[in-house]
Design a protein around this nucleic acid. Sequence first.
DNA 1: CAGTGGTCTAGACCACCGA
DNA 2: CGGTGGTCTAGACCACTGG
Lengths: 236, 236
Amino acid sequence: MTQIPLPAYEQVKAFIKAQISRGVWRPGDSVPSEAALQQQFGVSRMTVNRAVKELAVEGVVTRVKGSGTAVAQLHRISSTLAVRDIHEEILERGHTHSTTVLRVEAVQADAALAHTLKLRAGAKVFHSVQVHFEDGLAILFEDRYVNPASAPNYLDADFTKTTPTHYLLEHAPLTEASYSIEAALPSAQEANVLGISPSAPCLVMKRRTISGTQVASFARLVYPGVRYSFSGNFQL
Amino acid sequence: MTQIPLPAYEQVKAFIKAQISRGVWRPGDSVPSEAALQQQFGVSRMTVNRAVKELAVEGVVTRVKGSGTAVAQLHRISSTLAVRDIHEEILERGHTHSTTVLRVEAVQADAALAHTLKLRAGAKVFHSVQVHFEDGLAILFEDRYVNPASAPNYLDADFTKTTPTHYLLEHAPLTEASYSIEAALPSAQEANVLGISPSAPCLVMKRRTISGTQVASFARLVYPGVRYSFSGNFQL
DNA sequence: CAGTGGTCTAGACCACCGA
DNA sequence: CGGTGGTCTAGACCACTGG
């Protein structure tokens, strides 16, 4: 395949992965020690260490200090789910993105929302609601609450030109985020603005982002099930 | 927090991450060169290199050989979505897992299925259908097709004692997998065995696993939306 | 105790980039 | 060209594991 020889540590990684793929080494089996691999490949220990360490990070093997290295129990498939700015995602598909802004306002947080944003009940929060279109077709309803402490000028942003996600990433450095994905029916309003039936199943993502010590934002993102799916890939 | 001093490379990583979190270095800004960081921390270049290289792997910074290192544009939140064996997942929550096996059989693949499994139309494939319960509540309908070449004795397995996922991981080393997640309504049969309404939205995961050069299995996994969600977390 | 992995050093050579 | 990161070496000390 490759004309240029692979780096030594990649060769060591490839060898180990091949042994696993072919079933020569099975989950739970021990992997040769760094000293042994060092001999076998005629490279320094740092190089072998890098190879095996990267495999450990990837979850292919498990290492225990003082004990040794073993093939991981692959009883889980972990893959990276990319949650991206909807604008960039649509452009990357070669389509056009447009949006309709339904609401941009300041409101008082009720108890539940205040708890989510780690504010006191009744505190002022920013609220934006909009629909995103891919080539004119509605694919996302975005209902978002923002902590004014994280983005004081949020209400002044022009969300026809920049997405809330993009705006927040620019103004409040992202340090942490958590999300959940579930299936649900849209509300009457959501179904209406998305142009779908109220009985059409949707993917609903709830996402909370944290900037420093503050909760910066909480968003409810509704994707019509027939028009959108998450996908991912796992290797080795 | 930690009484024991952090490894040097972790200190370097923590320093860089802190500069980014606090907004001192913004996306696109350049990060000091390895030589500069080496001076600043009084460590060897290998140590600095490890720190910055790991940040690059984590997606926090981007590096260009010959040019330099810059803070990554964090206009994406990428997080690891763990797809795990349902049995282990339920046990880990401290609940009990049980299953009802509805079907275990050999069938002829139609054109679409044959294509998915990279077999010829009409080829024999194994088929299993079952429902999984968490503390007696149905949370997953599993409809799976298996390539006989990857697991010749699949039909002999006792799926009341081991899950298909677990069985396949034991008998066909996993090398690759791809999946998609969407929202959909269950079929009449699925709704019936899950004990939900046919109009109740569900998360549907379609997953294809590859072992070596063969497609080992294709599964359609239906999770009632009101009883199950995927969740994840992102940091930095 | 001997074996293992975790970390670290002080060099080195190379390919690449931008001026 | 000088500065950058990518890779590699041949040592080293340590903490931990197991018998």
